[in-house]
Simulated scan of single mutants.
Amino acid sequence: MSTQLHYDIVGSFLRPAALKQAREQFARGELDQAGLTKVEDAAIKDLVAKEAAAGLKVVTDGEFRRSYWHLDTFWGFGGIKHTTQARGYLFHDEETRNDSAQVSGKISFTGSHPDLAAFKYLKTLTDGTALIPRQSLPAPAQLYAELVRGPENVAALRKVYPTDDALFADLAKAYRDLILALYEAGCRDLKLDDCTWGMVVDDDFWSLMAGADFDRESLQAIYLKLNNAAIKDLPADLRVSTHVCRGNYHSTWAAKGGYGPVADYLLAQENVAAFYLEFDDDRSGDFAPLAKVPTEKEVVLGLVTSKRPALEEPEVLKARIKEASQYVPLAHLALSTQCGFASTEEGNQLTEAEQWAKIKLVIDVAKEVWPATK
């Protein structure tokens, strides 16, 4: 789809004031779930209309029902509970809230899930239109990384799964079952958001997560195995992609490093149709690792930052796209923002107007680089 359009988004949008207020009221017990859902529904309906008006053909619900891009999905599985840790995730200059996800039993898809319910509502807004509703999920590798984040999570994990074989099987099956349920609900565009690859390239960051003696090769083998097992033998008309970045929280970042150290696993072997890759600044390295991407796959270049309001120069973006085309044919490239605008409900430090200006820039430049773009 992105190679037809050559422009895209990652998925999350800044939460409108009314939604933020409703979530605060819900947290204080001043608004019940039905009341919160009503506000969410209205905000999502308005967002989809704005996405369509902006010229987007693939739309999302902005992740308006989530607090985090990843944890809410984890908490929706059977055998996973919401916990807190002594510290949050450590970002450059900031520390996040301290929520986490921990094993409490055998991991499974129970037949219902908040992301499934969210997609079903989004689908009602696109039915009868040419819009394509996309569902984003944090990747299976991301859930594994959370379950082994810190000694308490590891201890809880090992009480249920003494060895990894059963864990990997259950984790992949839970994801695959959720994906198939999404497919049955009409999902034909699924994106796996995955910061694990963007973190493991950074020795400094990952030594904090996995210990100073971490083995990058074994971690990559685990991530690849989990992700590929979850998306094995899916229906042919389900487009599965993955997005990789190095953290996105309140306009800050968590890791640095180019894609070279993970190219032989992620880019060469993950069985997705497209890679949405962060390339908005020097922390992401150069385009040379794109040579590892198989010839039939798409690369969506995240050249426009979602972290800062200043607009990139169109000529600079065009030059960078041309540079990337040395490694991936121009016909298989597309342009997007480097990440979403609100990976957590805090959101990045720009206004809604600035958010839409970024999207307009992406579309305008794409239509100049690829004149046949719809």
Rank of each mutant, 00 (worst) to 15 (best):
G285D: 04
V328W: 02
E184F: 00
A52H: 13
K120I: 10
Y144G: 07
F275S: 10
Q135T: 14
F26V: 07
S2E: 15
F287L: 03
K358G: 13
L266S: 10
A53M: 05
E346M: 05
I231H: 02
K191C: 15
P133M: 09
N228W: 00
K38Y: 01
H243V: 01
V328F: 01
R176S: 14
E313C: 02
G150F: 11
P162G: 06
K360I: 03
K57L: 05
G285Q: 02
I9D: 05
L147D: 13
G211A: 08
Y121D: 14
V48Y: 07
R149E: 04
I179E: 04
Y89E: 14
L226D: 10
Q85P: 00
L303Q: 03
F77C: 06
L311I: 02
G150A: 10
P16Y: 00
D127R: 11
K81P: 00
A212H: 08
S108N: 09
A229N: 12
A288H: 02
W197N: 08
S306G: 10
T351W: 01
T252M: 09
A17H: 09
D170Q: 08
G55E: 10
L192P: 05
A139C: 07
R320M: 04
W356I: 09
S284D: 13
A156E: 03
A18I: 12
E368P: 09
G11E: 11
K292I: 03
E278I: 11
G150M: 04
